Computed example of a mutant assay.
Amino acid sequence: MVLPLPKPIAEYFAADATDGTAVAQCFTPDAVVVDEKQEHRGRDAIARWKTEASAKYDYVSEPIAIDDQGGRIVVTAHLTGNFPGSPVDLRYDFTLAGDAIARLEIVP
Rank of each mutant, 00 (worst) to 15 (best):
V2L: 12
L3D: 01
L3A: 04
P4T: 12
P6A: 12
K7L: 14
K7E: 15
P8M: 11
P8A: 11
I9C: 07
I9R: 06
I9K: 09
A10E: 14
Y12Q: 07
Y12T: 08
F13V: 01
F13Y: 10
A14S: 13
A14F: 00
A14C: 00
A14V: 02
A15D: 03
A15P: 09
D16Y: 05
D16H: 00
D16P: 00
A17R: 14
A17G: 11
G20Q: 04
G20V: 04
T21D: 14
A22L: 11
A22N: 03
Q25M: 13
Q25R: 15
Q25T: 07
F27R: 06
P29E: 12
P29D: 13
P29N: 11
D30S: 12
A31I: 00
V32R: 14
V32T: 15
V32L: 14
V32G: 09
V34M: 01
D35I: 06
K37S: 15
K37Q: 14
Q38H: 04
Q38P: 01
E39M: 05
E39K: 09
R41M: 06
R41N: 11
R41P: 06
G42M: 07
D44T: 05
I46A: 05
I46F: 01
I46S: 09
A47S: 15
R48D: 15
R48L: 08
W49A: 03
W49Y: 14
W49N: 08
K50G: 05
K50V: 12
K50L: 08
K50A: 15
E52V: 04
E52F: 02
A53F: 06
S54F: 06
S54E: 13
S54I: 02
A55H: 01
A55Y: 04
K56Q: 15
Y57R: 02
Y59K: 07
Y59W: 15
E62N: 10
E62P: 00
P63K: 04
P63T: 04
P63E: 07
I64A: 02
A65I: 01
I66C: 05
D67M: 08
D67C: 08
D68M: 05
Q69P: 07
G70Y: 07
G71F: 02
G71V: 06
R72S: 13
I73T: 15
T76C: 10
A77F: 06
A77N: 10
H78E: 13
H78T: 01
T80L: 04
T80V: 12
N82V: 05
F83S: 10
F83G: 10
F83Y: 13
F83K: 10
F83N: 12
P84E: 13
P84T: 00
P84F: 01
G85C: 02
S86H: 00
S86M: 03
P87Y: 00
V88T: 03
V88P: 02
D89C: 03
D89Y: 05
L90I: 00
L90K: 03
R91I: 03
Y92H: 13
Y92G: 08
D93W: 02
F94G: 09
F94T: 03
F94Q: 09
T95F: 04
L96D: 07
L96Y: 11
L96K: 11
A97N: 09
A97C: 03
D99M: 07
D99S: 11
A102I: 06
R103F: 15
L104T: 01
L104C: 02
I106G: 09
I106A: 04
I106K: 09
P108G: 00
P108L: 08
P108Q: 10
